[in-house]
């Protein structure tokens, strides 16, 4: 456990050692603000809730989370520090989990900094704060899912751009898994059970379930399984890459 936290601290310090982390947070905050107020029509809706805010999170994360995740392993592969890291007296999973947690905490910080919008709706009216708490939780869980995917692809290659592109494509597929165009690809040949399962693996439907204000155990299981399984894949990929 302490080993994991050592990794987490190092990774977090790594994020904030360069301006990249700050640039990321600034971009994230600007985009959430712009999406909420301009695309989400926050004022026109006139409702004291954060739907306009949360609805765009899947699409925001689609690009921003892979951008965070891409450096997790690729940078180490490129600098050769993987060899240093993986010969330290740490259990094999510590590096995988530590890196993931660091990224997740980083996203959590960015998410926390959107607090003014929450204060704003509370000042403007009387929102259902239970729903908002659920929204933040759902958003954070979804970010974890995206991040685990991104971390796995980052572990695959020393090229950050390739890692980024692969994760964006995969995350995109997991977003649109419930959309007819994607399902049509399956309906011709695949059994119905597979089609409906693919549809149920979409980030968006689970996220929207939570954003409504209900923490369904099935949604939690979905996000937990996404995170854990992609991280196991991450471990396998890193192991494979060593030769």
């Amino acid at each position: 456990m302490s080993a994991i936290w050592s990794i987490v601290r190092r990774e977090l310090a790594g994020y904030f050692a360069t301006p990249v982390a700050y640039v990321f947070i600034v971009v994230f905050l600007l985009l959430t603000g712009i999406f909420t107020f301009y695309l989400g029509n926050f004022f026109q809706r006139g409702q004291a809730d954060l739907l306009a805010f949360f609805n765009f999170h899947p699409w925001l994360y689609l690009f921003l989370v892979p951008a965070i995740a891409m450096r997790l392993w690729s940078e180490e592969h490129k600098a050769g520090t993987t060899e240093l890291l993986l010969t330290l007296p740490l259990p094999a999973y510590a590096a995988v989990i530590g890196k993931f947690l660091a990224g997740w905490i980083f996203i959590g910080i960015a998410l926390l900094l959107t607090l003014p919008i929450w204060l704003t709706v509370n000042w403007l009216g009387s929102p259902d704060n239970g729903v908002i708490v659920a929204g933040y939780l759902g958003s954070f869980l979804m970010a974890g899912g995206f991040l685990a995917i991104g971390a796995c692809f980052s572990g695959m290659t020393s090229n950050q751009v390739i890692a980024f592109v692969l994760s964006v494509v995969t995350c995109f597929l997991f977003i649109v898994a419930g959309v007819p165009i994607v399902l049509d690809l399956f309906t011709g040949w695949a059994p119905e059970a597979l089609v409906s399962t693919v549809a149920s693996l979409s980030f968006v439907s689970h996220f929207q379930g939570i954003v409504k204000g209900v923490i369904d155990l099935r949604d939690l299981v979905y996000f937990a399984s996404m995170i854990v399984l992609w991280l196991i894949a991450n471990g396998i990929v890193v192991e494979l890459r060593k030769g």
């Binding site: 729903v131 149920s200 299981v221």
Partner: peptide, 25 residues
């Protein structure tokens, strides 16, 4: 892992219906 991902979620879908926390006011 892919098989597990499907299996876990199909299983959860069957097992955990109605298990939820309602945070709405």
């Amino acid at each position: 892992l892919v098989v597990l991902l499907f299996a876990i979620n199909i299983l959860a879908d069957g097992l955990f219906r109605g298990a939820r926390i309602d945070l709405t006011e």
